[in-house]
């Protein structure tokens, strides 16, 4: 690589500010319309901007995320699990993990207002996927951003070839969007393969095992497929290696990075991995780029 030719000469020129406002740090009020438990510990929130114009205007690319603020509690990034083809209302699927999400779960009710700014990040390169088969591999909460991509692909079904989702969860109770995924499969929009690490009391018709086992079961034409993987570090460790051994080029595999984010607009430095600001140049990166980061993506 030539040093004089930097990868991001002046970063990508973008208009001032974000769709939520010219000041990219200023959250905009959005109302919680609905909240429902997806699985124990994970909730789905339906949100709509209080400003009706913004609510209609607000659009995003699957894989992008927003910053959610609560008064006096703080702010945290959450990826968008819904598709921009379904405008007006956007969703967030949130697991209770820290103090902010704890506060959200305990104190925020339907009708309450939270702050949102975004959308942030690059999102999945969906246009690159057009005309190809799509292989989505999700592990645990990694299903959240992939659900947005799946919805998007189904809403533009004619632009994609075969769509296959492989999804591994810890137990049947932990499978997110289960009913919805069953519907997708029944309509024949996509092939869905589920695996859980251990069966429980709940009747489980699917496979018991790891998500990598599903890769054996699914019939995939590597040459005409883009793979998108999303999951925890241990998941990446196994799945990415497996995809490469299946013959995927490292440019055909995309994944979403997780890092600490404060500003979301490439300024604060917290999410930097080498020259990559996860919030700005990511969170979606190709496997090739991920492997060439100065730090390991999974540890």
């Amino acid at each position: 690589m030539s040093l004089t030719q930097a990868r991001h000469p002046l970063r990508h020129a973008s208009p001032r500010g974000l769709p939520t406002g010219e000041n990219p740090y200023l959250p905009v009020p959005a109302r919680v319309l609905l909240q429902s438990d997806l699985v124990p510990g994970v909730r789905l929130y339906d949100l709509r901007f209080v400003d009706p114009g913004l609510a209609e205007r607000f659009s995003w690319v699957p894989g992008q995320f927003v910053m959610l603020s609560m008064l006096g509690v703080g702010e945290a990034p959450f990826s968008l699990p819904s598709s921009p083809t379904r405008r007006g209302v956007f969703q967030l699927a949130i697991r209770e993990a820290g103090s902010l999400t704890g506060h959200l779960f305990r104190h925020v009710k339907e009708g309450d207002v939270v702050g949102i700014r975004g959308p942030l990040g690059n999102g999945f390169p969906v246009e690159k996927f057009y005309g190809n088969d799509l292989l989505l591999v999700a592990g645990g909460l990694g299903m959240v951003p992939l659900r947005g991509l799946l919805q998007f692909a189904i809403d533009h079904r004619e632009r994609f070839g075969r769509i296959t989702l492989l999804y591994g969860a810890r137990s049947p109770e932990q499978v997110l969007f289960r009913g919805e995924l069953t519907g997708v499969e029944r309509r024949g929009d996509a092939e869905i393969h589920l695996a859980v690490e251990r069966g429980t009391t709940e009747p489980w018709g699917g496979r018991v095992g790891l998500v990598t086992d599903l890769l054996d079961a699914a019939s995939i034409q590597v040459g005409r497929t883009y793979a998108v993987a999303c999951g925890p570090p241990i998941f990446y460790k196994h799945v990415l290696d497996r995809l490469v051994r299946m013959g995927f080029s490292k440019n055909q595999v995309f994944l979403s990075l997780e890092r600490r984010m404060e500003c979301g607009v490439g300024k604060c430095g917290h999410c930097s991995v080498g020259y990559t600001m996860t919030c700005l140049h990511g969170p979606v990166v190709s496997l090739w780029d991920a492997l060439n980061l100065p730090e390991l993506i999974y540890t």
Partner: peptide, 8 residues
């Protein structure tokens, strides 16, 4: 203030 509003 944070404890009273339920935060941390």
């Amino acid at each position: 203030n944070a404890i009273l509003c339920g935060g941390k």
